[in-house]
Write a protein that binds this DNA or RNA. Structure first.
Lengths: 142, 142
DNA sequence: ATATTAAACGCAACAAAATTGCGTTATAAA
DNA sequence: TTTATAACGCAATTTTGTTGCGTTTAATAT
């Protein structure tokens, strides 16, 4: 369960309306160790949430800078909670993403440092991502 | 236009049947500077190619090691021609991928070296990709 | 050259993911 | 409390990719 104060502060910071659905969605992200797809979100809601609301909420959360897209093994839309430093315009994701070949989950490896380059052969680089594939900690030990 | 000898050699190497459709598809990849999605392929064929044939050919080309999946800005299946060193089992893609925010195209940056790590915090890394976003050379100069 | 066999084709149907439209409801601000 | 607007929820639609299956075509053996 997430503290009401955190919800207030967060929603205010990101300029989001506090509807009960979006508060639940935020809680879900907050309590999830890794990323979420629309389908996973749908399954985790007891009261069946409309998929359109899910998609629109995700879109809105992303635009505000609260969550960010992460890669997915099956090309699904998939999101993770942003770090507190992120703003709508500037995301501070200096971490790598890890896709587990066994469980298909996506993990953020927060402490993996990315190379910092601004351009390469005339290509202007605004954003650089590292995506790893392999076996995650949990699946390794099975 | 691609030389018939190249087609012969390539299809033999990768164990592919020389159907007229697949020869055209190979030519298309060979003449493309960057990557192709199923939709783009479809549009580039004058004689409307069946989409199922496109998907199956792409799958077959990929499995043989002739082409490889590249990331796409809109979560589409997207492929690029492999380097000659690639085999069905082992791909030698030590390059970064660049996604242009303006034209949505994906480019392979062949000479961008990737870090080589085999594990991180208990995660076993089989494959590591770098994806850059920004403005490509062509779009920059517009 | 011809027959054989197995892959590739092409069409229809299907499935999953995501989007659009629109009238209704709920939130934030005036 | 009123008002403007964002969010909701339902249906319908679009887009992307897949499966099934009978037919065709290419590679191999005869």
């Amino acid at each position: 369960m997430v503290d009401n104060k955190l919800i207030d502060v967060t929603f205010k910071k990101y300029g989001l309306r506090k509807t009960s659905f979006r508060k639940n969605l935020f809680e879900l992200f907050h309590n999830s160790l890794n990323s979420l797809s629309a389908k996973e979100i749908s399954l985790r809601f007891s009261t069946s949430a409309d998929k359109v609301s899910i998609y629109r909420a995700l879109d809105s959360f992303e635009k505000s800078g609260l969550i960010h897209k992460v890669p997915d093994k099956n090309n699904l839309l998939r999101y993770s909670l942003c770090k507190s430093e992120c703003t709508p315009n500037q995301h501070a994701h200096d971490h790598a993403h890890f896709l587990c070949s066994v469980c298909d989950e996506t993990f953020c490896l927060d402490d993996f440092t990315l190379p910092s380059t601004k351009s390469h052969n005339g290509f202007l680089i605004n954003d650089l991502k590292i995506i790893m594939e392999g076996t995650c900690v949990s699946c390794k030990s099975i």
